[in-house]
Design a protein around this nucleic acid. Sequence first.
DNA 1: ATAAATCTACCGATCGTTCGGCAGATTCGT
DNA 2: ACGAATCTGCCGAACGATCGGTAGATTTAT
Lengths: 173, 173
Amino acid sequence: MVEKGYGGTSISDIAKAVGMTKAGLYHHITSKQDILFQILIHAMDGVERDVIEPVKQVEDPEERLRKIIRLHLRRLFENGLEFALLFPERRHLEPAQQEAVVQRGKNYLGLICVAMRELADQGKLQDLDINIAAVHILQTITGIARWYTKDTGISEDHLVEQTVNFNMSAILK
Amino acid sequence: MVEKGYGGTSISDIAKAVGMTKAGLYHHITSKQDILFQILIHAMDGVERDVIEPVKQVEDPEERLRKIIRLHLRRLFENGLEFALLFPERRHLEPAQQEAVVQRGKNYLGLICVAMRELADQGKLQDLDINIAAVHILQTITGIARWYTKDTGISEDHLVEQTVNFNMSAILK
DNA sequence: ATAAATCTACCGATCGTTCGGCAGATTCGT
DNA sequence: ACGAATCTGCCGAACGATCGGTAGATTTAT
């Protein structure tokens, strides 16, 4: 599905990949749409557990923001960068399911906005539009799934460090 | 195709949209794949004409980089943000066509890298990995197509200004 | 014995693509 | 100048393949 898109991936493809027939697969799922929905929900549960929760205890907003970026990237690397590519495929879901996914995405964005607002209160933030900057930060993170492979010669550690620094330089005074 | 993806858009859909039958449409095209290829080529021709060419005469690297970002965004707004979303759909092309598209994308990225290298020579650049930073910059630009609509209440001018500043702050000393 | 898991076989619909043909405009031979 | 030949744009119909999904029989595990 990551390689060929939602529309380009058939139930037969999926069944074959897990070593079953279509009918056998349908014993475990309810519809093709539901597969996509479950994947997205599962991915966002993971972000909640591995990024949002651990970060709640960090009081310093600068340190928190750095940790958000670092943990998010670490999670992407460990759980498969490619799943981030399925996020745009939410357009194939029912409006209600779409809303559920989008809502959780917005919550995450809010986390970044709050940290920036706290930085602004401390006078450490540049003069910028927080909402736009937050989207840009998120974009540099998730965008990595679109181009990074190990055979670029770039190490994961280096990429994480560079991405954190890039974004912090962009917003801090 | 932007809304439903390559696989999710049928030839019938396209034919209906242009007020023809499938057969009538096939009088003008050679294959579904070719439609996608032509769209991508056309889009990249536009970037070459509206961004790459006008920017060649700017000598100061900082000014040039600012102009690249500004012109690229202006072009996206005027020629339809949504076409940028078709770029990832290049996976549905033949490897040879894919290569042609990717190559032109890399050229564009090179333009950004050169400007940053010149900035580094002038000692104006932060200590960072130029290749990674270039991708991040490009990601904030093209990523805008993924979330921006006019009903966010954000004006195009404001967004352009914020995006230029975000990226320049990220890389300049 | 029973219930879960998986199978074979099939459904109607739709996919991308091709074919032959049909009007209307243009070009050509005389 | 005029009919014949050609070209252009489009259509209805159909092709084989594949789509998402289902029914019912069969295997597997307890």
